[in-house]
Simulated scan of single mutants.
Amino acid sequence: MPLPEGISARQAMAIGTAGYTAMLAVMALEEHGLTPESGEIVITGASGGVGGVSIALLARLGYTVAAVTGRMSEADYLTDLGAGSVIDRAELSGKPRPLARERWAGGIDAAGSVVLANVLSMIRGGGVVAACGLAGGMDLPTSVAPFILRGVTLAGIESVRCPRPRRIEAWNRLARDLDMEKLEAMVTEIALDDVVGIAPKFLDGQVRGRIVVPVAPREA
């Protein structure tokens, strides 16, 4: 992909696939008619890469954001990115009801499974959820109730086979709409030699934001 004007190579690596996917999800919400006036947007997996970039993007675009995380110790980090409120993932980890109290106009979900099912049950009539991850599992224990009784839309976000014109649009939007200071707040930089050591932390859910690995040329 061509590097958009205003984004450095380092920033492009910090954005990465996660940030690009977040932009596709935001675009999907917009295309389904959501605006800042529609109401609060919920973001699951908020401490991760998709979640963090989604929060920063939506906040800058004027949306009110509720961030869902399994690590409430990250609450200050999430509010600094732009979240208006932080929700413990445990609130969305119980057995889903077909329909629950309407709370949000839309959402971006990186969790799947029970968390996504609970989010869907709480989306307001006519709302939309962009689903782009499965950190919590590939299953979806829900019913048709949110779709046929509230007109909720579940929009799938698939970044790998995304057509080139839409990819370019997403990257141009990132250059325009992502606060690069917020992006930098998500970044942890590590040496190439540290990659193997940090990998298990990803599996244990101990990594937040984005990891950037500068790769220096090998010495002769």
Rank of each mutant, 00 (worst) to 15 (best):
A117Y: 13
A28S: 13
S47A: 15
M122Y: 00
L29M: 09
A105N: 02
S38W: 13
G33F: 10
M72D: 07
S54N: 10
K95R: 15
L34W: 06
V115W: 04
A22V: 02
V68D: 00
A66R: 11
M27S: 09
A90K: 15
G48P: 13
K95G: 11
A110L: 07
A67P: 03
G48D: 14
A28Q: 13
E30T: 07
A75R: 14
M72A: 10
G112E: 06
S38C: 15
I43Q: 03
L99G: 05
L61D: 11
A75N: 04
S73N: 13
G62Q: 08
I41P: 04
G39M: 12
V65P: 01
P96W: 10
D80E: 15
A66W: 08
L99M: 09
G82S: 10
S54Y: 05
S85C: 09
V26Q: 09
Y77K: 00
M72S: 08
L120S: 04
P36S: 05
T79D: 02
Y63W: 09
D76G: 00
G39D: 12
S38H: 15
A110G: 15
M23T: 05
D76R: 04
L92V: 12
V53R: 02
G62Y: 13
A22G: 05
A59P: 05
L57Q: 01
G48N: 14
L78D: 00
D88N: 14
I108D: 01
I55Q: 01
R103G: 01
A100I: 07
L81S: 01
Y77A: 00
E30Q: 13
G62L: 08
G94L: 10
G82Y: 02
V65Y: 00
G48E: 11
A117S: 15
A90I: 11
M27Y: 02
K95A: 15
T35V: 11
A59L: 01
A105C: 01
I41A: 03
D80Y: 05
G51V: 08
A67D: 04
P96D: 09
N118R: 07
P98E: 05
S113A: 14
E37F: 01
V119L: 12
R71T: 04
S47F: 13
L92F: 15
G82D: 03
G45K: 15
L81N: 00
T64H: 09
G84N: 01
L99E: 06
G62W: 14
L61Y: 10
G33H: 11
I55S: 03
A22Y: 02
G82H: 02
L120G: 05
A75V: 05
L92N: 11
P96T: 11
S93Y: 06
Y77H: 00
V115A: 09
T69C: 14
S47D: 13
E102D: 10
E40R: 14
A67F: 04
I55D: 00
D109K: 00
E74D: 11
P98H: 05
G48Q: 12
V115D: 04
I123S: 03
